[in-house]
């Protein structure tokens, strides 16, 4: 049956493949934001960092010929933006949400400006590991082409889950995020912890951007992110600051995004606008389901300006 369609059976495969392909930027950005928010700061600017990372990664890969160098450059640019956010927010009476929005606008604007000459050329892109070698179906083989960055993200989710709970580093981060006074009383450095947490968040978001421009869809242009960084930040809230829940939520979002095209490809096209809106619909539904007026957000770090 090679070369022919899968019909209805293609839908679950498509959605699974889509979940793996599309979820990586959500996953990396939300894990990064998770670290930042655990320290008591919110960085809304990760959309800008994501776009900047995508541009910087593509440019570096094009110039050097090495896509992995591009990934590193994207991470470093992201960390630099994180540092900027961290330093600005460490000044007295500075609102981290306002700074986040300005970082977002700065990142997007700068990336579009510097990215103008990068739209046409083709940079070397990242490869994938063929986990579908056992199958002779081209669809399954293609669905199981998995990029190492996705595996890295999954691993990181488990590592962070463990680290937040059982390591000294995780405890210190949580204390700084939950109560500044307690952290000071224990002699933990509050500002350096927060700044480095924001930098780490930026680093991961930058790598998420590199995934977009260097693997899937694997090209730089101005519509590349279309709000994925913002969705990922919202995702952290309904994952209730739990890295493993971030992983499931990211996969769910990837799957929701893949559903529309998958159904249309077999001719189920009614209500495709609604299907295309599925990820946003899902966000709303989950937020409504998890938030009630009579209780506060569970698991929210105490110092977060969202809940303070």
């Amino acid at each position: 049956m090679t070369g022919s369609g899968l019909g209805l059976w293609g839908i679950p495969l498509e959605v699974l493949a889509g979940a793996i392909r599309v979820s990586t930027p959500y996953l990396l950005v939300s894990l990064g934001e998770c670290i930042t928010e655990k320290s008591g700061r919110i960085n809304l600017g990760l959309e800008g960092v994501l776009v900047m990372g995508a541009m910087a990664g593509y440019a570096t890969s094009l110039a050097s010929g090495s896509p992995w160098l591009g990934v590193l450059a994207a991470g470093l640019v992201g960390a630099l933006f994180g540092l900027l956010h961290g330093l600005l927010c460490s000044m007295p009476r500075v609102n981290d949400i306002a700074i986040g929005i300005s970082i977002m606008l700065l990142g997007i604007g700068l990336a579009f400006l510097l990215g103008k000459p990068l739209i046409q050329p083709q940079a070397p892109t990242l490869g994938a590991i063929p986990f579908g070698f056992w199958s002779d179906s081209p669809q399954i083989r293609s669905a199981l082409q998995i990029n190492p960055l996705f595996l890295l993200g999954v691993l990181l989710a488990f590592v962070l889950h463990y680290a937040f709970r059982y390591t000294r580093w995780g405890m210190r981060l949580r204390i700084v995020g939950d109560s500044e006074d307690a952290a000071r009383a224990l002699g933990y450095p509050v500002l350096p912890t927060r700044i480095s947490a924001t930098m780490l968040g930026g680093f991961l978001a930058g790598i998420g951007g590199a995934f977009l421009s260097l693997y899937y869809p694997g090209s730089w242009n101005e519509g590349l992110s279309s709000g994925q960084g913002i969705i990922a930040v919202a995702l952290v809230i309904f994952a209730r600051w739990e890295p493993l829940r971030c992983l499931w939520a990211s996969l769910l979002f990837g799957a929701a995004g893949a559903l529309g095209p998958a159904l249309q490809s077999i001719g189920i096209t009614s209500a495709y606008y609604l299907l295309n809106a599925a990820p946003y619909f899902l966000t709303l539904a989950i937020l409504i389901a998890t938030c009630a007026p009579n209780r506060t957000l569970q698991g929210a770090p105490g110092e977060l300006s969202l809940v303070r």
């Binding site: 498509e14 279309s226 998958a262």
Partner: peptide, 19 residues
């Protein structure tokens, strides 16, 4: 201009046998 969705659409069509 929705690059991720365009890539998804291309993959879906190819999986359904469009060549």
């Amino acid at each position: 201009s929705l690059p991720v969705k365009e890539a998804e659409a291309a993959n879906s069509l190819i999986d359904q046998g469009c060549d």
